[in-house]
Amino acid sequence: MIASSRSPLIILVHLSVLLLVALWTLPTAGLLISSLRDKDQLAVSGWWTALSTSSQNLTGRASAPDAQVERDGKFVISGNLTEGGSAKVSAFGVRPMQPAAFEPGTAADIGDGQTLTVNEDGSYELVSPAKMEGTRGQRIFYTASVPPRFTLDNYREVLSAAGIGSSFINSLTVAIPSTIIPILVAAFCAYALAWMPFPGRAILIAVIVGLLVVPLQMSLIPLLRLYNGVGAFFGVPAKTYVGIWLAHMGFGLPLAIYLLRNYMAGLPREIMESARVDGASDFDIFVKIILPLSFPALASFAIFQFLWTWNDLLVAMVFLGTGNDELVLTGRLVNLLGSRGGNWEILTASAFITIVVPLIVFFSLQRYLVRGLLAGSVKGG
């Protein structure tokens, strides 16, 4: 008898998956929305308010005294604080401690017989009985209700920064070989550990599992000293792409071998035995049978490895350097943020630029991710 309702466990699993999807999607969507918002609105409200009108405390300045005109025996300076925008002023003032001292349309006495009037649409009029002197205009504080504004200026500012293009190419030069090389090496090792019996195989598998928990920071300096020693012996420069490729290969091989070995060990034995009966060598079996069947596992590791190498900063700084020509994208954006202080618009746009390529890789290969992680689930017919 087939139950008409779903098992509570299945419902719980589905709800858990939906929760994980939401936890992953919402921050990404928030980052994208924030990167497209006006920098003034981004500084005062969260991304979830992007479609609502926000109240902002703003600062403007009247035109300089050289723009004054004489009208009815008085000198007048006029203009618009919102520059023709659709913001509505709800209050204004001339002192930082009292930014909302006057209502729109009120003629505020600012001293020396001068009056300032700011209207709801942002237009203002500064009237003085005597000719105004100086080189800077009167500072005006005002509170305005600003409708949502979206712009690409944040991306233009980041993408137009010096060196961004070369750093993007540097990151691709690091990430692509650092993903392909470990896969090629690990695939051969995984096949040998899964299907080729030899003395010490179990010990070697145990060592690989143990290497999975070795912290990168603990092995980084010894690896760098070893590489520099070998490089000096053969006359190879210390800061090269070869060095960082080898470093990423070393750090990525334990996971790659473990994942691929578990997957290959679960492939049907009958297929390989039939191939051997037909005279196929181990290399033929590996290339023509194992690799095509192991594509989900290869794609799964490729996702993890590419995400790690693309977002890496520590290994890139150690093995590649921090020179202007060698700096990867993450390092370039860190420098950009450091020179711009805490500008949120730069931070959000920079962060989204760094995740665009990983998102493309993930969504291109995500259908193989679960199949590859469920190593050993394939059974022969």
Rank of each mutant, 00 (worst) to 15 (best):
Ile2Thr: 15
Val13Gln: 00
Leu18Glu: 05
Leu23Gly: 10
Leu26Gln: 06
Ala29Pro: 01
Gly30Trp: 00
Leu32Gln: 02
Ile33Glu: 08
Ile33Lys: 07
Ser35Trp: 05
Leu36Ser: 05
Gly46Asn: 12
Trp48Ser: 12
Thr49His: 08
Thr49Ser: 12
Ser54Leu: 09
Ser55Cys: 01
Ala64His: 04
Glu70Val: 11
Asp72Lys: 07
Gly73Asn: 01
Lys74Leu: 08
Thr82Asp: 14
Val89Arg: 11
Ala91Leu: 04
Phe92Asn: 07
Arg95Ile: 02
Gln98Pro: 00
Pro99Lys: 07
Glu103Cys: 02
Ala107Arg: 02
Leu116Tyr: 06
Leu116Trp: 05
Leu116Lys: 00
Asp121Arg: 13
Glu125Cys: 08
Lys131Gln: 15
Lys131Met: 15
Met132Tyr: 05
Gly137Ile: 01
Gly137Glu: 04
Ile140Leu: 10
Ile140Met: 03
Ser145Met: 06
Phe150Tyr: 14
Tyr155Gln: 06
Val158Thr: 06
Val158Phe: 12
Ala161Tyr: 03
Ser167Thr: 09
Ile169Asn: 01
Ala175Leu: 03
Pro177Asp: 06
Ala192Pro: 00
Leu193Ser: 09
Met196Gln: 14
Pro199Gln: 12
Leu204Ala: 14
Val207Cys: 14
Gly210Arg: 11
Leu212Pro: 11
Pro215Asp: 10
Ser219Thr: 11
Leu220Tyr: 01
Leu223Tyr: 02
Arg225Ala: 11
Tyr227Val: 03
Asn228Arg: 14
Val230Pro: 04
Phe233Gln: 13
Gly235His: 03
Val236Tyr: 15
Pro237His: 08
Thr240Cys: 09
Val242Asn: 09
Gly243Ile: 06
Trp245Val: 11
Trp245Thr: 08
Gly250Trp: 06
Gly250Val: 09
Phe251Ser: 08
Leu253Val: 07
Ile257Arg: 09
Tyr258Arg: 06
Leu260Asn: 10
Met264Cys: 02
Glu273Asp: 15
Ala280Thr: 04
Ala280Glu: 04
Asp282Gln: 10
Asp284Arg: 14
Phe286Ser: 07
Pro292Leu: 10
Ala299Cys: 15
Ala302Ile: 01
Ile303Pro: 05
Phe306Pro: 02
Asn311Lys: 05
Thr322Lys: 14
Gly323Tyr: 03
Asp325Arg: 14
Leu327Ser: 04
Val328Ala: 05
Asn335Leu: 12
Leu336Ala: 07
Leu336Asp: 04
Gly338Met: 01
Glu345Val: 01
Thr348Gln: 10
Thr348Pro: 00
Ala349Leu: 00
Leu359His: 00
Ile360Val: 15
Val361Pro: 06
Phe363His: 02
Leu365Arg: 02
Arg367Cys: 07
Gly372Ile: 06
Ala375Trp: 03
